[in-house]
């Protein structure tokens, strides 16, 4: 199976600063990849390179196209919502739909109307009259009405309350995602989306720290909750992170069989957020 996105040695420098440093990865069709990294890790730069908004060194192919050189063709099959790509405040909802309909060959206006009917957004409202949550709903409705192969979401729910955030992802899964489509999402609120991801990628200081399917996380990483003498033994087995919590030790292991840890305490699969913190701290040491 060919990859939808293929990156080999992708690098982006701004003067002496390297924002993305020799990154290689593949994204297969029908996956939901979470791209997780702290601020300034290079996530947005990498996404911009994928979207053809910035050029880069190395080999980058999205749906067989060179994103920077073939941006117009690429945009027929990619949609993106970025926190920084806001809808213009002066436009009316109906004008926005008119415009996208005339520009985008894969846009279905009926579908957009159907999605907007489920919200409180009126077609004669201007974007500036809508709340931040409603603007995101509107943007999502437009995006979901475009038959695109790849959807890129960069902090799509930033600044929204929990109700909107939950609804956003629920709608995305129930009304949009299928095996023909691929989603790439970045967010700080990783705990809210970890159960809908199929793959995960950590990035820090422009480098990829982890690139794995979610099911492989369970095989490769294990968290042990222990205390007392067991904790001392467990420490000897080389955890990649140790945290103290309520008098107990929480240790995270990589590439160690669960059988080795059996009997030393309670075993569980680590949360993505904890794994991320351990990986970033590990990389810094």
């Amino acid at each position: 199976m060919t990859s939808l996105v293929s990156a080999q040695g992708v690098t982006k420098r701004f003067g002496s600063f390297t924002a993305v440093d020799n990154v290689s990865f593949e994204i297969e069709k029908g996956r939901i990849l979470g791209l997780i990294g702290p601020n300034g890790a290079g996530k947005t730069t990498l996404l911009k390179a994928l979207l053809g908004l910035t050029d880069c060194e190395g080999q980058l192919s999205v749906m067989g196209l060179d994103p920077f050189k073939q941006r117009k063709a690429l945009m027929q099959n990619i949609c993106f919502i970025a926190d920084v790509a806001v809808l213009p405040r002066w436009i009316k909802v109906s004008q926005l739909l008119d415009f996208v309909e005339q520009i985008h060959p894969n846009f279905s206006r009926d579908r957009a109307h159907e999605l907007l009917r489920q919200t409180k957004i009126m077609s004669n409202s201007k974007v500036k009259e809508l709340s931040k949550g409603m603007v995101t709903q509107l943007h999502l409705a437009i995006i979901m009405s475009i038959d695109a192969k790849l959807l890129v979401l960069d902090e799509p729910t930033l600044g929204l309350d929990i109700i909107f955030r939950k609804e956003f992802y629920a709608n995305l899964l129930s009304d949009y995602f299928d095996e023909e489509r691929t989603i790439l999402v970045t967010t700080h609120q990783v705990e809210e989306i970890e159960n809908l991801l199929t793959d995960i990628m950590f990035i820090n200081d422009g480098k990829v720290l982890l690139d794995s399917p979610m099911e492989a996380i369970e095989d490769s990483y294990v968290e042990l909750l222990t205390s007392g003498e067991d904790a001392i033994k467990a420490k000897g087995l080389g955890p990649i992170a140790v945290n103290e919590m309520f008098g107990k030790s929480v240790m995270l292991y990589e590439g160690i069989s669960r059988d080795h840890l059996e009997g030393l305490g309670e075993l569980r699969t680590p949360a993505v957020a904890d794994l991320f913190v351990a990986k970033v701290k590990g990389a810094r040491q």
Binding site: L53, L74, M75, Q76, V84, A85, V86, P88, H104, P105
Partner: peptide
Amino acid sequence: KSILFWRSLP
């Protein structure tokens, strides 16, 4: 900041 929205279209 709407430029990236406009540029997200083909």
